[in-house]
Nucleic acid binder design. Structure first.
Lengths: 190, 190
DNA sequence: CTGATTTGTTAACAAATGTTATCGCGGGAG
DNA sequence: CTCCCGCGATAACATTTGTTAACAAATCAG
């Protein structure tokens, strides 16, 4: 799991081992809530195996905003960064193996990283990439039909299609599960 | 225009004057294209007066993705940062007074800023805020109806309602101008 | 001022999407 | 094994949204 760290982060072994030691292993069943809407986030999670969805309650209906898989880092960044109640619930879909790190430890790592120019730039790039992702998703939502967005998902994120229950995907696309089912059957015929 | 700089940026007068000297004034009429889709962005713009929209061509139809007003910094960040062709056109809506800065000068400023912890953190915060904005917009697009999104706009960005032609707003909301007109008349009656 | 262009409204109809309900399949709990 | 229950498909009907077209109002160039 941490081998990618070794390749990409130019820090000495001692430091790296210290950083790695902050992460703790946990195994959880499906549908485990790692963070509840309204609570303040104190942990970030790194997925070794399994998958996770991020969602919130909108007038009694689930709205799914993100999916995460192996090697992704998951957390309510907004809650984490600003110490405000999380707008979302974070929940496993499959039984999962996770590494988690406490906020105070991650903050410490971040402070140190920001003094190393190459790492700092990687960090900034990562944030920018995140911004571009959301930008693309927003643009797609006003430019593409639900059918087109489903096709995009097949192309760009086949894992979602393969591993995620369909009603979560529908919620993620902003449509009902009935409508998604119709889109699928239409595509199967056409 | 640059008075906010003085208050918020803890750098000495000499440096600040150097930075300010990089910005050049320009006055342009409405519908001036500051950056064309497909070109590589070499400039960022700071709006003194006027407003700007960002849009791209989607199978012959305008899709508007952003609006900017006074004191906003505008540019195709993606093109600017990665030196790739801009996915969008940037165009004034009203006659505008702008300050522009060349990429190489802004890069220089950025490199220096990143060595000053408080400024660096401000910069990182700014990127995060941008990410949250897009995140919110994306979430609103899957959670809210067009009517609700229009109401949100009235609440949160009244400038858009007041100053932007309605068909651009419709395009920004991902609906047709006819539909937006219907929403307005429905709200006027209800 | 005047004609042309841009912007906004409305109506009639078509297509997309939501709602509700029903059915069936398959896996997990007991 | 059996019985739920989560998940997905489909149908019938309701509502929302798009399309096209015609017209009205506002704005702009000459």
């Amino acid at each position: 799991m941490f081998s990618t760290f070794r390749d990409r982060f130019p820090i000495d072994d001692k430091k790296r081992n210290e950083y790695v030691s902050y992460f703790k292993l946990m195994k959880v069943p499906a549908k485990t809530r790692l963070l509840e809407e309204g609570k303040i986030s104190k942990k970030m999670f790194l997925i070794e195996t399994g998958c996770i969805r991020v969602w919130f309650n909108n007038n009694g209906k689930d709205v799914t905003t993100q999916f995460f898989f192996e090697n992704n880092m998951v957390g309510s960044i907004e809650s984490f960064r600003k110490n405000i109640p999380s707008p979302v619930t974070i929940e496993t879909i499959e039984p999962s193996v996770l590494w988690w790190i406490h906020k105070k430890d991650l903050d410490k790592i971040m402070e140190e990283i920001k003094e190393i120019p190459s790492l700092r730039d990687m960090f900034i790039d990562a944030i920018f990439d995140r911004t571009y992702d959301y930008m693309k998703q927003f643009i797609s939502s006003i430019k593409d039909s639900p059918e087109q967005r489903y096709l995009n998902l097949i192309q760009e994120r086949p894992q979602i299609i393969r591993r995620i229950p369909q009603h979560y995907i529908a919620s993620y696309l902003g449509i009902t599960k009935v409508h998604l089912s119709r889109i699928k059957s239409k595509l199967a015929k056409g």
